[in-house]
Design a binder for these strands. Structure first.
Lengths: 211, 211
DNA sequence: GGAACAATGTGACAAAAGTCATAGACCAGG
DNA sequence: CCTGGTCTATGACTTTTGTCACATTGTTCC
């Protein structure tokens, strides 16, 4: 991991912090589909995303999963930070969607830098705030919105995150992530296609325009 | 606010921190039913609960509200902390359930103490973690559970929080907080009464035993 | 090309939750 | 003790979502 690369994705970090990161952290790579984190796991480090895309989701005892949010380069997993400090276990799962590189920072420095580097302190707090807000938006949707609206929101978010209006995903996968059933998603998608909002192909959805 | 009182509710705080709090914070009182915080408000301070009980809930554009969690003495509002740092607006509402006293700490010290007092630093992070976890539990419930289970959970939480198995609340209020309708809640409660789980009175519910 | 499999489409039905209408029960103030 | 207001009960109905069964269409790999 070069200084330039770190600076590119974390532009607010001051020089000394970047040096410290370079000296003390470790790069870890995950191939698409690999788990970064699973329920019940203890953390010994906190992770900053440098390359790729990570999906964060919740899973209950019966194996139902539920999509929460994506992490992109320049972001960090709030839970790995917050659990790290108290040595608590995680209640969420994270999986690499694309091939992914993360900076793995040992727990000890996480604490030390909070006092030492203003930019690190702000980064950590901003990470908490951003994830907290995302959870609130998630709650809004599942509490207040019906499935058709949630599906549109889900597609919109994917278009933004992937930077492409073609989403490579099956109806079954969407159903899992929204905790619904395949038939329901298929029906809603078909309705959206008739309204000209999307175009359906096998294993992918082309988003034309959403409200 | 006396040193003894602060120490009682925040036993982990070191002596110097308590002195600082005493010197620099302000006590604010709210009567039952009063709003501590509303959507869109800017924060100039962060609040620690000393006495009473505060309900934190979410509200959407159409005025639907949605119960998130209670704050009790010894706890703090994570959002007031996290928003404070970035001067962002809040997306939640907080209301005093009982008469409530809070320590109001100006934003400036919040930051300063993070570096200065280890116990403050840990308190803040633990606050984030705890609220984050509570949000995750909330998401689990609305995503994975049906209304009957959610209702039981809601009642259980109230019994714990209030320290009494008689909950003074109307069916309509419960319906609002679970984002359901009064009739649905009435029907479910009636079913629970037939199963011997609760006893219904006007404006209150006596919890006998929940699974 | 054809077998085997994955993904999608669709009708019929069930279950859960929301809505509407209406009535009775309870309570507070005059 | 009557009256208006709030709270609760309940049947009938609609809508949404979930489930089941089965047909159809692509895809992959011999």
């Amino acid at each position: 991991m070069s200084v330039t690369e770190i600076r590119e994705h974390f532009p607010t970090f001051e020089k000394e912090l970047i040096d410290d990161i370079e000296a003390k952290s470790e790069i870890r790579s995950f191939t698409a589909g690999e788990q970064l984190m699973r329920t019940g796991q203890y953390f010994k480090s906190t992770m900053l995303i440098v390359e790729g895309l990570v999906k964060v989701y919740r899973e209950d005892d019966q194996g139902n999963e539920f999509f929460m949010y994506y992490l992109q380069p320049g972001q960090a997993c709030a839970l790995s930070m917050v659990c790290a400090v108290k040595q608590e276990t995680s209640q969420i799962m994270a999986k690499a969607v694309k091939d992914t590189e993360v900076i793995s920072i040992p727990l000890a420095y996480m604490d030390e830098w909070m006092g030492k580097y203003k930019s690190w302190y702000h980064f950590v707090l901003e990470t908490y705030r951003a994830r907290f807000e995302e959870l609130l938006v998630t709650i809004d949707h599942i509490a207040f919105r019906a499935m058709d609206e949630r599906l549109e929101f889900y597609l919109k978010k994917h278009v933004q995150t992937l930077g492409s209006n073609i989403i490579p995903i099956s109806h079954q996968e969407i159903a899992d992530e929204l905790n619904s059933s395949r038939e329901v998603i298929s029906r809603l998608l078909k309705k959206m296609e008739q309204l000209g909002k999307v175009k359906l192909q096998r294993n992918s959805i082309e988003v034309i325009h959403l409200s």
